[in-house]
Amino acid sequence: MRVFTAVIAIAFGLLVLLGYFLPPTLFPTVVDLQTVLLNWAVILTGVAALVGIFNLIIVHTDKVRRAEKGSVYSALLVLSMLFTFAAGMLLRPDHVAMQRVVLSGIILPVEAALMGLLVVSLLYAAIRLLRRRADAMGIFFILTAVVIFLGSATLPFGDIPVISTWIRPWVTQVLALGGARGILIGVALGTLMTGLRVLFAMDRPYGGK
């Protein structure tokens, strides 16, 4: 069974990869196959979402049953999910009530609130940084953040002369951009090698190996 799944994964992986490199005019079948396989992947991802939600319900129902710490929130989550699911089935997701109550009334404000919370969390993390890393890198990190912040902020008295016009653009366009490109090249190489390991079935995050 393990060999069978690995052979299928390798064959399909190679087909999809070839579809990116072969010219569609010369190899229309490969490109068509690639499209079909990617469509299947999208459909399977949709099914996986249902499985994931089902798993989430089981986990939280289990918590409620065992009266674990925080089970009130679990109960609230399960009830909300069931209510949203039932309302979606009855009214359809694009119904105006669903859009207004569930999307605009609950999901968007909650996500916006979390985004607002993020600002506080990030500020707190920056303050804690000097406690955690009182070394040259930590101090440099904080100083850079403060300089960029001062250079980007809209202040009542206008831009700060040297910081806004010279230091901030130089730091963001030269130092930060160069560093970011270096990190991204490293990440891209890591992604490439991980993909190849999966393609050659050296890593098999499927089929139980």
Binding site: T194, R197, D203
Partner: peptide
Amino acid sequence: GSAFAALA
């Protein structure tokens, strides 16, 4: 890529 690395 990062997801597969995390799975490993």
